[in-house]
Amino acid sequence: MIEGFVALYIFMLAAFTGYEVISKVPVILHTPLMSGSNFIHGIVLVGTMVALGHATTPLEQLVGFVAVILAAGNAVGGYVVTERMLEMFKTSRGDK
């Protein structure tokens, strides 16, 4: 476990970063951005891999296996949908 206060600092700084990054986003990008941030928490995949990795009983393996499937769905689906949305902005930029 990362030292208590260091963890707290990480939490605080990450929270401010998230707040600052999004506060400058135009409305036009809100849906892609929600989708993009949805993709980024797909990093939970890494956590599920480690959790399943040290599963020892069949129950733990089952839970871990389902979790990996869900997390992979979050990451891949989030990416594909965001990519498709942002792809549309390319054409409109070309018009100018």
Binding site: A14, G18, Y19, V21, S37, N38
Partner: peptide, 10 residues
């Protein structure tokens, strides 16, 4: 946490 904060603001 970054997504948590950004999502809350959104």
């Amino acid at each position: 946490v970054v997504v948590g904060a950004a999502g809350t603001l959104l």
